[in-house]
Simulated assay, not measured.
Amino acid sequence: MVNYIWLFFIVAGFIAAALQGNIELFSEAVFEGAKTGVTICFSLISFMVLWLGLLRIAEDAGLLKKLAILLRPVVRFLFPTIPKDHPAIGYIMSNMSANMLGLNNAATPMGIKAMEELQKINPKKDTASTAMCTLLALNTSSITIIPITIIGIRMANQSMDPFEIVGTTLMATAISTTAAILVDKWYQRKSLRNE
């Protein structure tokens, strides 16, 4: 569906440019946009490689295990239906850790693996389980402490202070994550009453 939306914008832009007699302007904008996109992608790749490398060092040094131990009570509270030593717990903690560091691209594969593991213990295979809904709500709320990807984009665009986004990000993530947890817990109680 997203491809159709982008196609619509491109075709609409071309038609608008043709009707106004500015095809050259349209062509320049297309090539300038592609050039900017490639430049930003290369900047983000270097930034992501740096942080993923640091994340790998932290993992090898055992820091992620310590973070996982700190997150374990939170994960047990949020996901009470998952058996204690189930592999999904590890993937969920890795997903949450990567999201907290703003490494959304690195968090996605772990979130997918967590969903696959949760599906294995889901009694109703055609319906999302409570744990799956909770994980989706947490990922949608964008729990972020250090917005590394946004900082990278701001650095790539020569922002005067690329780190000034941290304070507002903390405030926004606190509000969105709290709202996601409250709504998720409310729906969990509602579904238990309906059973």
Rank of each mutant, 00 (worst) to 15 (best):
M1V: 11
V2K: 08
N3I: 12
I5H: 13
W6M: 14
F9E: 07
I10F: 15
L19W: 10
I23P: 10
S27W: 10
V30F: 12
F31V: 09
E32D: 13
F42N: 10
S43R: 09
L44F: 08
F47G: 12
L50I: 02
L52I: 07
R56A: 08
R56D: 07
R56K: 12
D60H: 10
G62Q: 04
L63Q: 10
L67G: 14
I69V: 13
I69F: 11
R72W: 07
R76N: 08
L78N: 05
L78C: 09
I82E: 08
P83V: 02
K84F: 04
P87S: 03
I92A: 04
M93W: 01
M96W: 00
N99A: 04
M100N: 08
L101W: 01
L101C: 00
G102H: 00
G102T: 00
L103I: 02
N104V: 05
A106N: 04
A106P: 03
A107E: 03
P109K: 07
G111C: 05
G111I: 05
E117I: 06
L118F: 09
P123E: 06
D126C: 00
M132I: 08
L136H: 08
L136Q: 14
A137W: 02
A137H: 09
S141D: 03
S142V: 13
I146E: 03
T149Y: 08
T149C: 07
I151C: 11
G152K: 11
R154A: 12
A156G: 15
M160I: 15
F163V: 11
V166M: 04
G167Y: 05
T168C: 13
M171C: 13
I181Y: 06
V183E: 09
D184T: 15
D184L: 04
W186C: 05
Y187L: 07
Q188N: 09
L192V: 00
